[in-house]
Amino acid sequence: MKAEELKHRITLQLFTTVVNENGFEVETWVDFKTLWSAVTNLHGREYFAAAVVKAENTVKFTIRYTEGIDESMRILFKGKHYNISSIDNIKYANKFIEIKAMEVDNSG
C-alpha cells in the first residue's frame, strides 16, 4: 500500500462512561483517534459472501498500524457510523491494518 492511497480521514470512537456537566455518569461515544485511511467497498467474492449474511453495507478501511484498536469501537466516516466487524493486521507485519466495518442504520 502506498501512502497516497491513505487519503480519507476517519475517526475511531470508543464507547465509554463520562461524567456530564451535572455530575452524572453517561455512556457515550468518545473520539479515540483520527487517522488517514484508504476506503473501499467490498467487491467480487467478498461482496457475495457479505450478501449471504445481509452485510452488504460493509466497507473496508485500511490504516497504518495502530495499537489499541478492537471490535468494540466504531468508525466515523463522512458523517456515517460503522461498527467494526473484523480487524486484520496484514501479514502480521505491524505496518497496515485492514478493518471491515458495517454501516449503522440510523433510521430508528
Rank of each mutant, 00 (worst) to 15 (best):
M1H: 07
M1F: 15
K2Y: 07
K2F: 12
A3H: 03
A3L: 09
A3Y: 03
A3M: 10
E4V: 12
E5F: 04
E5Q: 12
L6W: 01
L6I: 00
H8N: 13
T11K: 13
T11Q: 04
L12Q: 04
L12G: 06
L14H: 15
L14R: 15
F15S: 13
F15I: 06
T16E: 14
T16R: 10
T17W: 12
V18C: 05
N22K: 01
G23K: 02
F24H: 09
E25N: 04
E27W: 03
W29I: 02
W29Q: 01
V30W: 12
D31L: 01
K33W: 10
T34G: 01
L35E: 06
L35H: 03
W36C: 03
A38K: 11
V39F: 02
V39T: 14
T40W: 02
H43N: 07
H43Y: 11
G44S: 10
R45M: 09
R45V: 10
E46N: 11
Y47T: 08
Y47S: 08
F48E: 14
A49E: 07
A50M: 07
A51D: 02
V52Q: 11
V52F: 00
E56C: 03
E56L: 01
V59S: 07
K60R: 15
F61Y: 04
T62N: 03
T62I: 11
I63A: 00
I63K: 02
R64P: 00
R64E: 14
Y65W: 09
Y65A: 03
T66D: 05
D70F: 00
D70T: 04
S72Y: 13
S72D: 10
M73V: 07
M73H: 05
R74W: 08
I75D: 08
L76K: 12
F77V: 13
K78D: 09
K78E: 15
G79L: 04
H81V: 14
H81E: 12
H81G: 00
Y82L: 07
N83C: 14
I84Y: 07
I84A: 00
S86H: 01
I87S: 02
D88K: 11
N89L: 06
N89Y: 09
I90K: 05
K91W: 01
K91Q: 10
Y92S: 15
Y92H: 13
N94W: 05
K95R: 10
K95E: 05
F96H: 12
I97E: 04
K100C: 08
A101G: 14
E103C: 12
E103Y: 01
V104D: 05
V104L: 07
N106T: 15
N106L: 10
N106A: 09
S107V: 13
G108F: 08
G108L: 08
